[in-house]
Design a binder for these strands. Structure first.
Lengths: 152, 152
DNA sequence: GAAAGTAGTTAGCTACGCTAATTATCGTAT
DNA sequence: ATACGATAATTAGCGTAGCTAACTACTTTC
């Protein structure tokens, strides 16, 4: 690959943006971490629950892949969520090895509350911005999501 | 402060941006997590090291505050970093209770490599964007950092 | 129906987070 | 000068989260 080379200016720009975006995302999320303690749910459990709520029922292996952890780790996360009645499992009628995880009503409610708290905290911090700045951020989120999808 | 502006339109916009920004930041960082395994350093240790490298020597308590963990947790993080010769402590000459942590040359090098890997991965994903889009992202990072500073 | 493959669990380890209690030092007030 | 309260850090002990290796229980394939 001929290192597609645009100008050195562009190279600098991409680099600069990558660097700053990286830092900004870290700092932004760090500031919201505080809100999570109120839910009584740990971050990994919250994250699993959010997959089940937003993407629907999933097998243990699918969840492990989605969360980028190994299956034994997911086994225990699910066990914890089950004990708190936030998730239920349902056996697959055609394949005796697998069972599908479902968020319970309680689990869904807990997740949505926690998420709302985080978003509310972020919202509060954005309140000082002008409509024009908010628009910039809005377009930036679009670009960020596109970058996530982009080929590694 | 008189709770300025509360039109439904603006309310909707802030809310929308908060929601999307929250998700986008999570997704963006999740995609970069893979790169970290190569450093041999765990995320919490990497983070502590980055404070020392970019903000300079700090006491254990200051580090704990910066990383939002309790002091005993920081004690062990530092012990781990010390064992790998990534951090050294230096006694405070005036106060016998405290010692200041310094990143060693090895620690600084390791951190910068790890960070470079993450940024390079992000950079690769941003390469498809136009200069105009990059500019939008650049301005957005500015706004994000400002939001982080904003009063909770 | 035996062998190979797949989904999930168990066992056992390290790391990270916490609180409570302890040690050592500092500052201050008597 | 000493004694007392405050502060910095560590130790002890607990639960959760991550891993690998080894196991069980099914499915698929030949």
């Amino acid at each position: 690959m001929p290192k597609s080379r645009a100008s050195p200016e562009r190279s600098t720009q991409v680099d600069r943006v990558a660097n700053r975006l990286h830092s900004a995302a870290i700092h932004l999320l760090r500031g919201l971490r505080v809100e999570d303690t109120l839910s009584g749910l740990t971050a990994p459990r919250m994250s699993v629950l959010s997959v089940l709520v937003f993407a629907g029922p999933r097998t243990l292996g699918e969840l492990a892949a989605a969360e980028q952890v190994r299956r034994p780790t997911m086994t225990r996360l699910i066990q914890g969520l089950e004990k708190d009645s936030l998730v239920r499992r349902q056996a697959d009628p055609t394949d005796g090895r697998v069972s599908r995880m479902h968020a319970t009503a309680k689990g869904r409610a807990l997740l949505l509350e926690g998420r709302a708290r985080r978003v509310a905290a972020l919202r509060k911090r954005l309140e000082g911005l002008s409509p024009r700045d908010l628009d910039t951020l809005d377009r930036a989120t679009e670009l960020m999501e596109r970058a996530v999808q982009a080929p590694a």
